[in-house]
């Protein structure tokens, strides 16, 4: 039995295959318009965590997103075909993209409303076959700036800061500050 959210501007519902702490906050069921996970738990969201209005969980059939306690996700896009894990107390700013997969053809693959024949996803080059889909981990207390992109396979260390509009293509050590496109280490925060 699906449920809807109180005073939700979007006329949608929250899927059944999610594990939600009673204190977690959802801004809108709009977040689930592209949620297609068929796992028993396609989203786990912890105590006091927030998934604010405008956030989008574009989760494929085998995808699982985990959001730790007190994590704060604003209007970001999470593309997940396997695993995206966001640690406790992490903050993800608006329009950030966290993706574990180079797909993002949700409506095309599922047929969308046009139910049209599709010739298959366009080939995105040699990376496609080797590592199209690699889990992404955002560590405890990490902070992702707005418009940043976190690409497949990246691990953001505990307490790290990713500057606004950065594009992160490799792992970020704990407590590092990274910025740029592609992102580089700027300095480390003093513990």
């Amino acid at each position: 039995m699906t449920r809807s959210l109180p005073s939700d501007w979007y006329p949608g519902t929250v899927p059944d295959n999610i594990r939600v702490d009673a204190t977690a906050y959802f801004g809108s069921s709009y977040a689930f318009t592209k949620f297609r996970s068929r796992l028993a738990v396609g989203l786990a969201i912890g105590r006091g965590a927030s998934l604010c209005d405008g956030a989008i969980l574009d989760v494929g059939e085998a995808g699982c997103v985990t959001i730790g306690e007190f994590a704060l996700i604003t209007s970001a896009l999470i593309i997940c075909d396997r695993e995206v894990r966001i640690g406790p107390y992490a903050m993800v700013s608006w329009n950030a993209v966290i993706m574990d997969s180079y797909r993002f053809l949700p409506s095309v693959i599922s047929g969308g409303t046009t139910s049209r024949p599709f010739t298959g996803p366009p080939s995105p080059g040699p990376r496609e076959s080797a590592d199209r889909c690699r889990p992404v981990y955002v560590g405890n207390n990490a902070w992702i700036g707005f418009d940043a992109c976190i690409l497949p396979g990246v691990t953001i260390g505990e307490g790290a800061i990713v500057g606004a509009r950065s594009v992160v293509i490799s792992d970020v050590p704990a407590y590092a500050i990274v910025g740029g496109n592609p992102a580089r280490i700027i300095r480390y925060q003093c513990p």
Binding site: L77, P122, S123, P124, G125, C149, L151, S166, N181
Partner: peptide
């Protein structure tokens, strides 16, 4: 044809992106 442009990418004026190319997310 068959170009793939990632999220948050920006394509500026006068650019030709030839067939089958891939523009990574956030690229300018």
């Amino acid at each position: 044809d068959d170009v793939w442009i990632g999220p948050n990418a920006t394509i500026l004026k006068g650019v030709r992106i030839a067939a089958g190319a891939m523009v990574e997310p956030g690229a300018v």
